[in-house]
Design a protein around this nucleic acid. Structure first.
Length: 270
DNA sequence: ACCGGAGCCTGTTAGC
DNA sequence: TGCTAACAGGCTCCGG
């Protein structure tokens, strides 16, 4: 469900209720949620730790805790995080719960159970394989150019590869290719410098738009407070199959690429 | 090196 | 309306 803009929205919403709070307990009802360490060790190492800051890396939420501990959560397809009062009625999908020192708790709700929780001393154990953050200063046209050339990958699946650029998912990959006017099946080594510049600009544009609009509530994604984002009202191609392209009127087409549904304008994108 | 397919899960949607 | 199959915003593993 959540891509970079959705995760960023969640991080921003969680700072107010969580930063400065101390964890008192971890409860887990779906063992596979917790990858490392064991639940018992997680309990021991989280108890009494204070949340110093919350950041994002790619689609991961990173909670920097006192004592040099780092809690990392990936929401995968259906994860949702919210801080609620402890007497809020139980939720059958809240598989992992972190109790706080103020009669509130952080609930990790996850219908499809793909989400994952990690507690580590060194965040790079989990995040080390990721490519550049697309909205950081280090993601320059030259960096993108260098990473595109010297390999022959189909563009759409390449954008979804988190070691190539981190944080892009199916919505924003399709949207970025549309604004860059690039066909999803183009090969990475076939782009001109002008096209690489357009792709760089388009990636940053769609991710920033997604953050401004607080994420896309196209299926189940909602913000921590339960309200919807607004990016679903600003998509150009994603799940607009058959609807007219806003630029030329041609019906948007859908195809499968790398096992993922891909939406594009056959006239504007080449 | 890269691609396709299966697998992990459950709920929703599309199609007959 | 009811059933079934396909599909879902992620990612990993495996074989070719």
């Amino acid at each position: 469900m959540p891509e970079l803009p959705e995760v960023e929205t969640v991080v921003r919403a969680l700072r107010q209720p969580l930063v400065g709070r101390t964890f008192t307990e971890v409860r887990n009802y779906w063992p596979r949620h917790i990858v490392t360490p064991s639940l018992a060790e997680m309990q021991e190492r989280v108890h009494g730790r204070t949340v110093l800051s919350i950041t994002r890396r790619a689609k991961y939420l990173v909670f920097n805790l006192s004592g040099g501990e780092t809690l990392i959560i990936h929401l995968k397809m259906s994860g949702h995080l919210a801080v609620v009062d402890s007497d809020t009625p139980p939720d059958k999908y809240a598989h992992t719960i972190f109790k706080l020192d103020n009669e509130q708790e952080l609930r990790f709700r996850d219908t499809r159970k793909f989400g994952r929780v990690y507690l580590v001393h060194d965040p790079s154990d989990i995040l080390g394989h990721l490519g550049p953050e697309p909205l950081s200063d280090s993601f320059t046209v030259a960096v993108l150019q260098e990473r595109l050339q010297g390999r022959k990958r189909v563009l759409k699946p390449l954008l979804l590869d988190q070691t190539f650029v981190a944080g892009i998912g199916n919505i924003y990959a399709d949207e970025a290719l549309y604004y860059a006017r690039l066909h999803p099946e183009r090969h990475s080594d076939s782009l001109s410098l002008t096209e690489i510049e357009a792709l760089h600009r388009a990636i940053q544009k769609v991710l920033q738009l997604g953050i401004e609009r607080e994420g896309a509530s196209i299926a189940m994604y909602v913000k921590p407070d339960g309200s919807k984002g607004d990016m679903q009202n600003a998509v150009a191609v994603f799940r607009r199959t058959g609807d007219p392209c806003y630029h030329c009127g041609t019906p948007i087409q859908r195809m499968k690429l790398g096992g993922r549904s891909t939406h594009f304008c056959p006239t504007c994108q080449s």
